[in-house]
Amino acid sequence: MRLTRRHPSLAVVLLCALAVLAARPADGDGAHAPGHGSASGISAQVARLYEEAAVATQQYEAGRRKAEEQKAEARRLEERLDRERRATAVLHDELGRIASSQYRSGGGLPLTVHMILADDPEELMRSQRAVWQAQLSLDRAIEKSERAEVRLTRAEAKAAAAWKALQKRNAELAALKQSIEQKLETARWELQGQADVSVAAGACAGAVRLDQPETRFTASWVAPVETYVLSASFGSGGARWANRHTGQDFAVPIGTPVRAAGAGKVVKVSCGGAFGIEVVLEHAGGYYTQYAHLAAVAVDQGDRVAPGQWIGQSGTSGNSTGPHLHFEVRVTPEMGSAVDPVPWLAQRGVPL
Rank of each mutant, 00 (worst) to 15 (best):
T218E: 13
R129S: 12
A141G: 06
P224V: 03
L138F: 07
E146S: 09
A148S: 13
E214Q: 15
T153K: 05
G193V: 01
R126K: 11
R126E: 10
S236N: 08
T112S: 15
L210A: 01
Q128N: 07
R151S: 12
R154S: 08
A195D: 01
A165V: 10
L152A: 01
A134N: 13
A165T: 11
K144N: 14
T227N: 12
K168T: 14
L138N: 05
W221C: 02
V197N: 03
A130I: 09
D139V: 13
C204E: 00
E156Y: 07
L230N: 06
W132N: 14
L117M: 12
W189I: 08
P224K: 00
P224D: 04
A130D: 09
L117N: 11
T153Q: 11
A175R: 14
A159H: 01
D119P: 08
L184V: 00
L138K: 08
P213R: 03
T186E: 15
T186H: 11
E143A: 15
A161N: 08
E123G: 12
A200G: 05
T112Y: 13
A162H: 05
Q192D: 08
K177Y: 07
V113N: 09
V225M: 02
K168R: 12
S236Y: 05
A219T: 15
I142E: 04
Y228L: 02
T153W: 04
I116P: 05
M115K: 08
A171K: 15
L124V: 10
V197A: 07
A205E: 14
V208M: 02
W163G: 10
A130M: 09
Q194Y: 15
E226I: 10
L111M: 04
